[in-house]
Amino acid sequence: MSATAAPLPAFRIERSTRTSWIGLAVAAVAIVVLISLPWWGGEDDLRLIVEICYTIALAQLWNLLAGYAGLVSVGQQAFVGIGGYALFGLTIIAGVPPIPAVALAGAVAAILAVPTALIVFRLRGAYFAIGTWVVAEVFSEVTGLLPDLGAGTGMSLPVAVSRAVGETRFERETVLYYMGLVLGIGTVAAVFAWLRSRQGLALTAIRDSETAAGSIGVNNDRTKYAVYLLAALVTGMLGAVIYLEKLRISPDAAFDVIDWTADVIFIVVIGGIGSIEGPFIGALVFFGLRYFLADYGAWYMILLGAVAVVIMLLARRGLWGLLADRYDIHFFPVRRRVRLE
């Protein structure tokens, strides 16, 4: 160790890498292609892209929770359900137009996340996971007791509300498509901006060692709380868009742990937990398997499970972890490098 008083070497801090410029270029091209899709794609294409968008958004949010903040939630379906039901309630009972209702549904989910956090944040690790699931079930049961929202059997969205989205079927599909696209891209952009910021440094530190993060002045609890509320807000908006498209809601479907959480966990774990790239890779694998194997029924589920087990055994940080370790590539430049000159 040298304790010299010599002047510091000249240096600069780099935030981007060569692969990150490639990533940016690919993202720009992809966004242009996606924006133009309604002019040349079919209705099925639009619906598939919207589904991929909200799945990636849910995966990014779950990754932020579990992969960074150490909050392994098995109850994110609570906020999908709350968002969906808030949309139905706001449009049918309060007469709010559907598009502002989507934003408000996110706010409702975030507000309900405050008391939820008060309960589940008292729990750690596996107890936290179970706690979030129980809370989601409670929301599901309570929703089933609301007669104005179809009680246990659910309800359909009135045609008038659907008309307010767009007069023609094509117009409705296009509006819903852009809403899904904006939410999907917006979520990825928000997660990226967060991780790249000073707060991202705190979140990454918590990911790697909670004890040490506290010892250098990171307010772990507040950071986790902020992640939890952001995830609830955006998940609520996603739930609203999902049910604005589905047109029919019921407690069992809206608070379904498989659709809204288990599949998302699969995607993040397979793709690579604790990175932005991971959920993209995971979604690619998930939708790829579904495309080729969906006709095989139970075999599809068995294969999905087998893939998950094999990857968890052989690549604990997912497929992206394997690639990133070997080639040092980063498509989303959240790191800081020192270049001595």
Partner: peptide, 8 residues
């Protein structure tokens, strides 16, 4: 030591 292992 408790380094933040995946950070530089």
């Amino acid at each position: 030591p408790h380094p933040f292992g995946n950070m530089t």
